[in-house]
Amino acid sequence: MINVSELPLWVEVLVAILLLLSSLFALLGAIGLLRMKDFFQRMHPPALASTLGAWCVALASIIYFSTLKSGPVLHGWLIPILLSITVPVTTLLLARTSLFRKRMAGEDVPAEVSSRRTESGS
């Protein structure tokens, strides 16, 4: 356990860079969410924050707390792992929802990929 004021300089620089990088990616994701024209295009930018953004913050928190406590503090990794499990579920369901609603509204989206015959067969 060392004092907050005696952190080595390289740790501080590394943590600062990682945090800034992550917030830049989060901001880019928000800009993309705002600027894209079509709903399916808008589904892509949020992935920036949930992958590289989350990885950078987790790495920063691991490095910072491991130096602070003079031992490995690894619980930061749980956030990216949790995100990589939950985010696909939400995106998948949202994509399906949007396809379903757009088809109902008669908008220009691809037709269902499974043909009628296989549907009744299975």
């Binding site: 943590v15 994701g29 709903f39 924050a49 989350a54 913050v57 920063a60 609603r101």
Partner: peptide, 25 residues
């Protein structure tokens, strides 16, 4: 559309979570 709002809400949650980690540091 409604799904745009759900997507934005989901992104807000992720941003809040990343902010919490930064505050922890």
């Amino acid at each position: 559309s409604a799904q745009d709002r759900v997507l934005a809400l989901d992104y807000l949650y992720i941003l809040a979570m990343l902010m919490m980690l930064a505050l922890g540091i």
